[in-house]
């Protein structure tokens, strides 16, 4: 072999460059272990845009206190906005329960929950509350979460239920997910950038802004908004899609997995504005409720359907899916009482 051939001439390899690449990954591994990094990210991130990093940061900073009962509120932005975590933590202080809000903007499809289930279970929660709604099963797939986490176990199910097309059609998302899994900086690049900008902003303006509140909607939508949306939907907002079967199958797996780990699993049919029902056909609602009720009985988790929840009126909502302050209060009180009455949590007194 010739001395100058690329591979056989070890001395000529760009070793320094390779060391640089290795160091780049090593630094990220090190930073990802630092709680202070995640605390920093959590406190300077914004809602919606940075939900994914907030989710991971929240999980990473959960303390491993023995004896405390971790209650994870999971699901979509409904889960994030519909519960008053501060209130719940305060009220249930005596039970040693700590609530963590892990809601992420999106549809909270079982598919999304499935890919993060191991991350959740690794933190050994006492209860996982999953807020779903009809859109979680009856809408097209949201690949947003897939972009952040690479979970190869989902691939066989995708192939089985939605075919090769779903995989090839989203190969970019899957490749990105794979790359992002290997690099924290790459996974949350936009969020980290925004977080640093927010930090510099606070530093310069000498004020501590609560960045996460940037996108919090406080005003109720007008009547015209609801009418327009109903017209737009034309009774077709939620329907059976190629992903419905996949989501149902993954939900069953998810629920079985959680229950088998002795974690209490509560599925709540997230409160929705009464007018939302005008946006889709009634039979979809029946199918959705029946499926969850059936599985609850078979697998052994709790399903809180609309009839089990307190009555929510249109005055409790800011839009179709999200509760306002009074609605939030109502749901938080309900979950507090439910957890106490069902003896999931016992007081120390």
């Amino acid at each position: 072999m010739g001395k100058n051939l690329f591979i056989f001439n070890f001395k000529k390899l760009p070793l320094v460059f390779l060391v640089g690449v290795l160091l780049f990954f090593a630094i990220q591994l090190f930073i990802a272990q630092l709680k202070s990094f995640w605390e920093f990210c959590y406190s300077y991130s914004c809602l919606i845009e940075d939900d994914n990093i907030r989710f991971e940061a929240q999980l990473r900073i959960i303390p491993d206190i023995i004896g405390s009962k971790k209650i994870f509120l999971t699901g979509s932005s409904q889960a994030r906005t519909d519960f008053d975590v501060e209130y719940l933590n305060n009220k249930l202080k005596n039970t040693n329960a700590i609530f963590y809000n892990l809601g992420v903007a999106g549809q909270a499809q079982p598919m999304e929950m499935f890919i993060v289930k191991n991350k959740l279970l690794r933190k050994k929660p006492e209860v996982i509350v999953y807020v779903s709604f009809v859109g979680s099963f009856y809408e097209d797939c949201n690949y947003k979460r897939l972009r952040c986490y690479f979970y190869p176990a989902i691939l066989p199910y995708m192939l089985k239920y939605v075919g090769m097309e779903s995989v090839t059609g989203h190969k970019k998302d899957l490749i990105y997910a794979f790359l992002k899994e290997s690099s924290v900086f790459f996974r949350y690049r936009e969020s980290i950038r925004r977080i640093l900008e927010n930090y510099v902003h606070d530093f310069l303006y000498a004020e501590k802004k609560t960045w996460f509140k940037k996108y919090v909607q406080e005003k109720n939508e007008t009547e015209a908004y609801f009418i327009n949306k109903i017209k737009e939907a034309n009774k077709n907002k939620y329907k059976v899609t190629p992903y419905t079967k996949l989501n149902k199958a993954l939900f069953v797996l998810l629920a079985k997995n959680i229950v088998s780990k002795d974690v209490k699993f509560i599925v709540i049919n997230g409160p929705t504005h009464p007018l939302l029902k005008e946006c889709y056909r009634e039979e979809i609602d029946y199918a959705y409720n029946n499926f969850l009720a059936d599985q609850a009985e078979k697998i052994g988790f709790v399903y809180l359907s609309e009839s089990s929840l307190p009555k929510f009126t249109e005055k409790d909502f800011i839009d179709f899916l999200h509760l306002n302050a009074s609605g939030k209060n109502k749901l938080s009180r309900f979950i507090e009482e439910y957890l106490l009455n069902s003896h999931y949590l016992s007081t120390n007194e």
Partner: peptide, 20 residues
């Protein structure tokens, strides 16, 4: 020096990844 070069690459990679 190799150490300086490696540091240069690391800084560039980090900046490109986050801010690119």
């Amino acid at each position: 020096k190799p150490a300086l070069r490696a540091a240069f690459y690391v800084v560039c990679f980090c900046l490109l990844t986050i801010f690119g």
